[in-house]
Structure formats: structure tokens, C-alpha cells
Design a protein around this nucleic acid. Structure first.
Lengths: 107, 107
DNA sequence: AAAGAATATTCTAGTCAAGGCATATTCGAC
DNA sequence: GTCGAATATGCCTTGACTAGAATATTCTTT
């Protein structure tokens, strides 16, 4: 989870992921499209691959990189545990606050 | 978006967010619970606050930090644009890739 | 085998962020 | 106003990350 966040926290890596949303691409077109030098693209892709966000498919001398859904799905699952924070009553928090101030206990 | 990822990419910050899911807490209890020194907790909370992930409510000398839903909701919206990758059978992508590589191998 | 295209790796330098520690600040109790 | 509790800030050191440039590797073609 944290590794996914770390991978997406880098601006250029984020742009690469966004670009790949439209489909797999070889390294050079990514670099052209995002105005990044080839070595940087390869490095970023390496990180994205280590995080499972991307997979490679060799084709001739080119390597097509494609998005992998798994980490994003896991992110979605993680968010699920937080959805109550805005989906439903948010005011229950105030009660908890009251409670905490009285009993300084920690569980 | 990237700022949200950056905030959550730090392990201890992630743990703080997870802890705050159960409700607002003062700084010291966070430190105790996560075995972090007080200055680090304050620094991490500062980053989380700058990212909008957290808000403060002073109470006596204590400061209760609570989760803010907005960034998580925006994350959810962002994920929405990727859900087709796994919601529908977008695995067609894999097929296409397979096909392309096979065609190349055999041709 | 040689050449060329596409990509990966290495090395270096500069930057940024995190932890540790000391200290400053804020606020309530007396 | 002073003291003490809770929290924030500053400084320093260290480790990690990134870009740049050069070079190595891989695969294809001839």
C-alpha cells in the first residue's frame, strides 16, 4: 500500500500512469509524449514495475508497458474502509471526541 | 493528488492516518500508540495537515487531530477513471498484447 | 558477424525528507 | 506572573531519490 503511494507520489511517474491509462506504450513514445529523457523513463518504469503498477511485454526491440489493475484495486479496497467518513454520518466523530477528552485512556 | 500520495507514502504517516480512522486523537496518544517521539508526530501531522488530510481542534493544551475526508474522496474520484481497468473485462488488453507478441513470434 | 535501434544500467552530483535532540511556544492551574 | 503539561519549531546529520550523461545490453536486420 505504502509502496503504491510512493510510486505515485513522484510527479513524472504519476504522469506516466495517467498516460498509460489510454493503453500500453513503448518507452520512447512515453518519453516523447511527456518530454522526458529515455533513461529517466526507464528508471521510473522500473519503480512502477516493482510496485506492480505496470507490466512489460517485449515486442521486437521495443517494450510495451501496460497498467496493472491490482494495486489500484487494492487502493480501492483500502479506501473502502474510509468511505464511511463521507458517505454516512460524520457527526458521530464529535461523540468520540467528547469521550476521549474524559477518559484519557488508550486502548 | 500527487501531494496526497506523497503524504501517504511515508510509513509512519500512513500509520497515523490509519489510527485516526477510529476517531480524533491528541498528539501524545498518537505518539504512545505508534511508538513515535513527540516532535516526529508533530512534524508528520504538519505534513498531513498541509495535504488536507487532517484538521486540528484545540482543546485545553491538547490538540485533537481528525481525518478530513476531502482528499480521500478526491482519491476515490481519481480511481474512478481507472475502474474500467478491472470492473469491466478490460483484460482484453492482455489478449491484444498476447496476440501481438504471438504474431511477431510466428511471423 | 556487424551495425543500428530501443531500452536498461551505472556513476555522479545535487536535493529533499526523516529522525534525534534541544528549545521555543501555547495554554491552563495555582 | 510562574510553573508545568502539551505541542510546535529549529538545527543538524544521514539516507534516499532524482536528473543528467555516458555506457552497456538486447534484439533485429543484413
Amino acid at each position: 500500500m505504502v509502496e503504491t503511494f510512493a510510486a505515485l507520489a513522484e510527479p513524472n511517474r504519476f504522469r506516466i500512469v495517467e498516460l498509460l491509462r489510454s493503453g500500453p506504450r513503448p518507452v520512447n513514445t512515453i518519453g516523447e509524449r511527456l518530454a522526458l529523457r529515455q533513461p529517466q523513463v526507464s528508471k521510473h518504469l522500473k519503480v512502477l514495475k516493482a510496485a506492480g503498477l505496470v507490466e512489460v511485454e517485449p515486442r521486437a526491440q521495443q517494450r510495451f508497458y501496460a497498467l496493472r489493475p491490482e494495486p489500484l484495486r487494492r487502493l480501492d479496497d483500502w479506501l473502502d474502509r474510509y468511505r464511511q467518513l463521507w458517505d454516512e454520518r460524520f457527526d458521530a466523530m464529535d461523540e468520540v471526541l467528547e469521550e476521549l477528552t474524559q477518559k484519557e485512556d488508550e486502548g
